[in-house]
């Protein structure tokens, strides 16, 4: 159980590293949001499951469930909020080949 937990934790750490690297290396803001959100969601998932397996007790698992649920709901919401803000701000990336939201006009 402990070994499995540590395997999960190391995988989670790798995904966190990937998220950081993605935020650093991706070319524009939207791509950075994508890399950051996906990698950190799975990373947090994995680390939390790993910690739950290492400390296999009810009180740990219950709190870990709460954190996972909160992160899975809140992380995509936060990133889409940033995405919309970026889209309407003056920092909007100008490399989009297709833009359906623009046809709709303001708001």
């Amino acid at each position: 159980m402990t070994i499995a937990g540590y395997v999960f934790m190391i995988i989670g750490g790798l995904f966190f590293l990937l998220g950081g690297l993605g935020v650093l290396r991706m070319p524009d803001t939207f791509n950075r949001i994508q890399a950051g959100t996906k990698a950190t969601t799975l990373g947090a998932f994995s680390v939390l499951i790993g910690v739950g397996l290492v400390n296999f007790e009810w009180s740990w698992i219950a709190k870990i469930i709460i954190i996972i649920v909160f992160i899975v709901i809140s992380n995509p919401i936060g990133s889409s909020t940033i995405a919309k803000a970026t889209y309407y701000s003056k920092y909007k990336p100008d490399n989009l080949v297709q833009d359906d939201l623009e046809k709709r006009g303001d708001e």
Binding site: S74, I77, S80
Partner: peptide, 9 residues
């Protein structure tokens, strides 16, 4: 998403 998700959160 923010408008409806924030109620859950």
């Amino acid at each position: 998403m923010l408008k409806h998700g924030s109620k859950l959160l």
